[in-house]
C-alpha cells in the first residue's frame, strides 16, 4: 500500500557541510516501511522544481511514527528541503520500492555504505538490531575524507558487541586508507563466501565494482540504486537500469522505482 501524506517536519539537523537530516512525521508510511524503501518528496508546491525528489529512508521511529531522510544539497530541490523548519509540512508518497532481502541468522551480513549511500543499509542494520538478529554483521562505512562521513555519530552508536564497524577514507583521514571495495575484499578473505550476504549503496563507481565482484565470485550482493525518478510509481518508465537475469537472458530495462531500487548485483549492468 502506498500513502500520500502532508508530513510535518519534526526536526531539520545539519550534519555537516551542505548535509542535512530531516525528521518527518508520517505514521502510515512508517508502519509499512522496511530497509530499502524510499519516499518521494514534493519539495515545494509551486512547480519549481517541478518533480518530486526520491530519498531512501534512513531510520524510522515506529512509536513516534516518524522517519528520517538524509541528503546533501546538490540543486534547487535539495536546497529548498535544507531550509525546511520544524512545523513546515512536505507532501510525501511512500513507502515506495522494493526492500532488501533481510538475512537469516546463519548468514554473515556485510553492509557496504559509500558516502550518503549509508542511508538504506543503516536502516537495515538498525532493523536487524531491533529484530534481535543473531547473525554476524559487519558495517563498512567509507567516504572521500573524514568530514564526509556525515553519519559518523549515528554509526558510532551502533553496539560494537553486535556489529563490527570498519571505516575507510580515500585520503586515509579516518580508518583504512583506500576504497571501500578494497576493505570489503579484506573482510571477504576472512569469511565463508557461501554464507556472506552483502548489502550496499553508494556512488555509481563503487556499485559498478561490487556488481562486477558479485558476478566474478558468485556472491550474494544486493545494491540499492539511485537515479532521478519523475513518478516513483512505475508509470513514467523514466528511471530504468540495464538488467540481465542471467548469462543466457537478453538485456532488458527495469524500472528502479518499482522493480528496485534494490537489485541483485549479479543481475544489473552498471557501465
Amino acid at each position: 500500500m502506498v500513502y500520500q501524506t502532508d508530513s510535518p517536519v519534526l526536526e531539520n539537523l545539519r550534519l555537516g557541510e551542505d548535509c542535512y537530516k530531516l525528521i518527518l512525521k508520517a505514521p502510515k508510511i512508517v508502519d509499512h516501511s522496511w530497509a530499502g524503501n524510499f519516499v518521494h518528496i514534493q519539495v515545494n508546491p509551486f512547480f519549481y522544481p517541478l518533480l518530486r525528489r526520491a530519498f531512501s529512508i534512513n531510520e524510522v521511529d515506529r512509536k513516534k511514527g516518524s522517519l528520517e531522510v538524509v541528503f546533501k544539497v546538490i540543486g534547487t530541490g535539495t536546497g529548498h528541503l535544507s531550509r525546511k523548519k520544524k512545523g513546515d509540512t512536505v507532501n510525501l508518497l511512500g513507502p515506495l520500492g522494493k526492500t532488501f532481502s533481510y538475512p537469516d541468522n546463519e548468514d554473515i551480513s556485510i553492509m557496504v555504505a559509500g558516502g550518503l549511500g549509508i542511508v538504506p543499509v543503516y536502516f537495515l542494520t538498525r532493523d536487524l538490531l531491533r529484530k534481535k538478529h543473531k547473525g554476524k554483521t559487519y558495517f563498512l562505512y567509507g567516504a572521500k575524507e573524514k568530514d564526509q562521513l556525515y553519519c559518523l555519530s549515528d554509526v558510532k552508536k551502533l553496539p560494537k558487541s553486535k556489529v563490527e564497524i570498519l571505516y575507510s577514507t580515500d585520503d586515509g583521514s579516518y580508518g583504512f586508507k583506500g576504497y571501500l571495495d578494497a576493505l570489503l575484499k579484506q573482510v571477504l578473505e576472512k569469511e565463508d563466501k557461501n554464507k556472506v550476504k552483502i548489502y550496499a549503496c553508494g556512488p555509481e563507481g563503487l556499485l559498478a565494482k561490487l556488481s562486477g565482484l558479485a558476478k566474478e565470485e558468485n556472491l550474494f550482493c544486493q545494491l540499492s540504486l539511485e537515479v532521478g525518478m519523475p513518478c516513483g510509481m512505475g508509470t513514467c518508465m523514466g528511471c530504468v537500469v540495464k538488467y540481465k537475469k542471467d548469462y543466457s537472458s537478453p538485456v532488458t530495462f527495469k524500472r528502479v522505482c518499482c522493480e528496485g531500487p534494490v537489485f541483485n548485483a549479479q543481475e544489473v549492468i552498471l557501465d
Partner: peptide, 20 residues
C-alpha cells in the same frame, strides 16, 4: 517494446524532457 537506454528523463525549468 523495451524503449531507449537510460537516461530517459531530465527535469527542466517548469517542465521535463522524456525519451522513453
Amino acid at each position: 517494446r523495451d524503449g531507449h537506454p537510460p537516461l530517459r528523463t531530465f527535469e527542466t525549468p517548469s517542465g521535463m524532457l522524456n525519451a522513453i
